[in-house]
Design a binder for these strands. Structure first.
Lengths: 205, 205
DNA sequence: GTCTATACACCGATAGAC
DNA sequence: GTCTATCGGTGTATAGAC
């Protein structure tokens, strides 16, 4: 998945090595704290105490570094989601991951970057589809097991579509996290208690 | 609201003039097409056919330009929302604004910038709270008029909270728009038809 | 594997003439 | 109001020694 193989001439360091991870750790911290405008080879090198040139030994270009960073993060996040989905209270655990583990600042930075770096956009799409599949599967199973409510506002009992619920849940989780980090929480309790009620009805604790 | 008054010494051009608007137009286009890393005074000047120095005649710093740009955009967007809220089908019109008018690329760029520029963060919060108030008011009125459905999955008839619905609707609209622009639409029909059913139940056409 | 040194482009912002 | 000219800084990326 690394773009390293695509470049030919320059000698390069091994992905997965300690330095490689250290550089991605530094990049992640810079991205989180200062935004992607500050994500430069110099800043990363300075942060982890190596020379700038070394960054280009492990990553052919800064774009490649960014893509590898997102990929490492998305692998971890999918792992977290799969673990949550395999637990005894899958929906609650997944919701917990979405609302507490995710860093909205990082997501914002990657979203902004995805518009500029095409290969990153593809990674992002892949991540969205994978994570949604995990959530839809967990929701479908829980809904099948429990006689669940009706679609909101609907007269006759059209059931909820797991795909719709998955999109709503992840969208809302991201919004709440982002707004909280931004500094506003107006209306948050209302939607949180609504999700709490939904969880209680479909996955009793 | 412009930061111009806060700088003292340098002579500056009038906000609201033709050039001022032209520069913000150029900035908006750059932001949309190339992202905020490319949003520089030179790029803007080049785009609208003036010299770079002129940008600094109208805006004290690039940050001020960005804040003014967001502010101009948020005023327009709030105006659109208020018009929609005053129409004969307010909920449908508001939903239409959220899902069709909004450019998710621009939002992503501003979100990423809001973490870095403190004054922009405040503008963003202000916009979020204003637009949410408009939506909540429209929802509350429509819900009061129509006997609406129950909270999803709930046994006893706890009503939907307008604030919760507003957050859900805007979150989902932004997600759908962003994913569509990114290049994926998996699950979108499910959630769109769910909103369509909700709208039909609460605001018959 | 890691380093020094550096080419070259572009950035924000300013001084001061017209 | 708009221009020319420019400073000082920082960015990506490379060449080639050790």
């Amino acid at each position: 998945m690394s773009a390293i193989a695509e470049r030919s001439d320059r000698r390069m360091g091994p992905p997965g090595s300690d330095n490689w991870h250290a550089m991605l750790d530094g990049a992640e911290a810079v991205l989180r704290e200062e935004g992607h405008a500050a994500l430069t080879s110099r800043r990363i090198a300075e942060r982890i105490g190596v020379k700038q040139r070394l960054v280009y030994y492990y990553f052919a270009t800064m774009d490649d570094l960014i893509i590898d960073l997102f990929h490492r993060m998305s692998v971890r996040e999918l792992e977290r989601l799969r673990t949550a989905a395999g637990s005894s209270l899958p929906l609650r655990e997944i919701w917990d991951v979405c609302i507490n583990t995710t860093d909205a600042r990082l997501i914002s930075q990657f979203m902004a970057l995805a518009g500029r770096i095409e290969a990153l956009g593809k990674e992002v799409i892949h991540f969205i589809e994978e994570s949604r599949a995990i959530q839809v599967a967990a929701l479908a199973e829980a809904m099948q097991r429990t006689p669940h409510g009706k679609a909101p506002g609907t007269g006759p009992g059209a059931g909820l579509d797991p795909a719709a619920v998955a999109i709503i849940a992840t969208s809302v989780a991201l919004t709440l996290t982002r707004e909280r980090q931004l500094g506003t929480q107006s209306g948050h309790e209302a939607v949180l208690s609504m999700f709490e009620r939904f969880l209680a009805s479909i996955e009793p604790a």
